[in-house]
């Protein structure tokens, strides 16, 4: 089984640690993982702003680079959601697109559904708050959205519960948006900041030492707010916890 590792553009530049943790978690499962060097960006930032000008090119690029892998795995719910839910507008009918769509997974989803990991053989003796980032949570179905009346499950929680010593805290609004939202974070800065601070308060009141999630863009926003205010909340990508790392910053 050959995995094509899909690392979002900004993670490659700003979060090499979380990216490397993704690679290592997958390799530790005995998987053959390849990181295609010519990959850049899935196009999500432009798409979420409605700028479609370069999107067909970027989508076709993505398809060309990743189409021959057995699975494409990326540590970002929103980027994977871009491929699975929004590429159709540009790639519908292109040879290989249906296969690509079916085989592109968010990291935790892949570990949970495809590999069905039993144990990570690691410990993380800390109180952890899980931030269910919207695109992964609602568009990919990583967890059951609180709005729906269907049987509840959460793939991220299930994985975290396999980590020794990890205590998952209960926040009041487990799937409320953090207010990152791509360019929203800047265009609607004031609302974005209130939303982010509200998430921080919720997690801190629940006793979280570390906030984790499957989308580092949200965590970058939260971390930026927490560090500015000196809040005692560390932020880590799910991959870093599952990789057995100790609490640290996101880089």
């Amino acid at each position: 089984m050959r995995i094509g590792l899909f690392i979002p553009c900004y993670m490659n530049e700003l979060y090499p640690g979380a990216s490397m943790a993704t690679l290592e978690v997958l390799e530790r499962q005995g998987l053959e993982v390849d990181y295609p060097l010519e990959q850049t960006c899935c196009g999500q930032p432009m798409a979420n702003s409605g700028c479609t000008k370069n999107l067909k090119d970027l989508a076709q690029r993505f398809l060309r680079i990743f189409k021959d892998y057995d699975y494409i795995v990326g540590p970002s719910g929103s980027c994977v959601a871009m491929v699975r839910t929004h590429y159709a507008q540009f790639l519908d009918g292109e040879p290989g697109f249906d296969r690509l769509k079916e085989r592109t997974f968010e990291l935790c989803e892949f570990l949970h559904d495809v590999i069905q990991v039993e144990t990570f053989d690691i410990s993380f003796p800390h109180k952890v708050g899980l931030h269910n980032s919207c695109h992964g949570h609602r568009d990919l179905g990583l967890g059951t959205p609180s709005e729906l009346h269907v049987p509840c499950t959460n793939k991220l929680e299930n994985l975290l519960l396999k980590v020794d010593g990890l205590e998952l805290v209960t926040v009041k609004r487990p799937d409320e948006c953090c207010g990152f939202g791509g360019t929203f974070a800047v265009a609607e800065k004031e609302v974005s900041v209130v939303m982010g601070n509200d998430r921080i308060e919720d997690h801190l009141s629940a006793g979280a030492e570390v906030m984790t999630g499957a989308d580092i863009s949200c965590l970058m926003h939260i971390d930026g707010l927490a560090r500015r205010q000196g809040k005692p909340l560390k932020v880590m990508h799910m991959a870093q916890i599952l990789n057995g790392e100790v609490p640290h910053g996101t880089s």
Binding site: N12, E13, L14, M20, Y35, R228, S251
Partner: peptide, 19 residues
């Protein structure tokens, strides 16, 4: 971005370089 948020800390190397 930076009015109320810190920027991410800039790592020395990208993931691609590390890889």
């Amino acid at each position: 971005w930076g009015e109320e948020r810190e920027l991410p800390e800039m790592p020395k190397k990208s993931f691609k370089e590390l890889y």
